[in-house]
């Protein structure tokens, strides 16, 4: 039940917003995320955006994975 999916914000009106994924649109609330703008990705859980997906952090996350994969490879040798 703690499922949350990243959706792209396409409309904002105060605490109400519309987000979409592959053309499927849904109404969401953005009470907990400030300074969002159209085009941002937010993680949506039960109709509420619980956080913004930060592109820079997403890249760092990928870096972390690469590091772990690399270390695992070296340790397996």
């Amino acid at each position: 039940m703690c499922l949350a999916v990243p959706l792209k914000v396409i409309e904002i009106d105060g605490n109400d917003a519309v987000a979409e994924l592959d053309g499927i649109k849904m109404k969401i609330r953005v009470d907990f995320v400030k300074d969002i703008k159209i085009g941002d990705y937010v993680y949506v859980h039960a109709g509420f955006a619980i956080n913004k997906l930060d592109e820079k952090l997403a890249k760092e996350n990928l870096e972390l994975f690469r590091e772990v994969a690399n270390a695992a490879k070296n340790k397996s040798k």
Binding site: F32, V33, K34, I50, N51, L53, D54, L57, E60, N61
Partner: peptide
Amino acid sequence: NEYMRIVTLEGNEFAQRI
């Protein structure tokens, strides 16, 4: 923290407050 793309040290303070 492996989920660094959305989890921060302090979390979502707006949500915590409400």
